[in-house]
């Protein structure tokens, strides 16, 4: 009950804001900028490490919306989704890296199931929160760009797998694959890390 009501309200606001922008209402436009520019920028940094390019791209997305407001689509379900898709396109145009064909290695997923439960129990029991937090940080600095992108869209932006697939221009299966790969590297990574820290702790004790 609660949930449907909330969704309804949110959609209404998005639609109202969007209608406002189409009419040329500056306050609707500024509130959309205020609401989304920061997280949009955050997403942009996952696509391109040059902050100047990301800034430009975020600007351009908003400038385009304002300039082309009268021609904007009438029905929009999520402004956020629209913006993220637009930004991704922008950045890839900006750095001349428009998506090529996807090469999805579906077989790799199965490989990781081997020896699953064993490593996991070791993991849970030996880790402290501090180590976990270090793991995640390390993970995010080492993963391939697209896996980080998928993680960002899923955990920080909280898009659904379906939305992520559309934003990234890949199949849902690929999104799940990106996520899986990312999380398994977290595990293999953390395994060695926790062992290391165990040794380190032992050294300290003696």
């Amino acid at each position: 009950m609660d949930f449907t009501f909330e969704t309804f309200n949110k959609n209404k606001t998005d639609q109202e804001l969007w209608a406002g922008i189409r009419r040329g209402d500056e306050s609707a436009f500024t509130s959309v900028f205020d609401l989304y520019h920061a997280t949009l920028y955050n997403y942009g940094t996952k696509l391109c490490s040059n902050s100047a390019i990301v800034e430009d791209a975020v600007q351009d997305v908003f400038i385009d919306i304002w300039r082309l407001r009268s021609g904007l689509t009438e029905n929009i379900t999520s402004i956020k989704f629209y913006l993220y898709r637009a930004l991704r396109r922008r950045i890839h145009v900006g750095i001349d890296k428009f998506p090529v064909t996807e090469d999805i290695d579906l077989t790799s997923e199965d490989r990781f199931f081997v020896n699953d439960s064993n490593s996991e129990t070791i993991l849970i029991e030996t880790e402290s929160s501090a180590i976990r937090s270090r793991q995640v940080q390390e993970l995010l600095s080492n993963l391939p760009e697209r896996q980080i992108e998928a993680l960002t869209l899923r955990y920080f932006e909280e898009f659904s797998t379906e939305e992520i697939a559309q934003i990234m221009g890949v199949s849902e299966k690929s999104v799940r694959n990106f996520m899986y790969k990312a999380l398994t590297s977290l595990r293999s990574h953390s395994h060695s890390l926790s062992l290391l820290s165990l040794i380190f702790c032992l050294l300290l004790v003696f």
Binding site: H37, N42, T152, F156
Partner: peptide
């Protein structure tokens, strides 16, 4: 938290 650290 960590994927959302790069806000401007």
């Amino acid at each position: 938290k960590d994927t959302g650290r790069n806000v401007p």
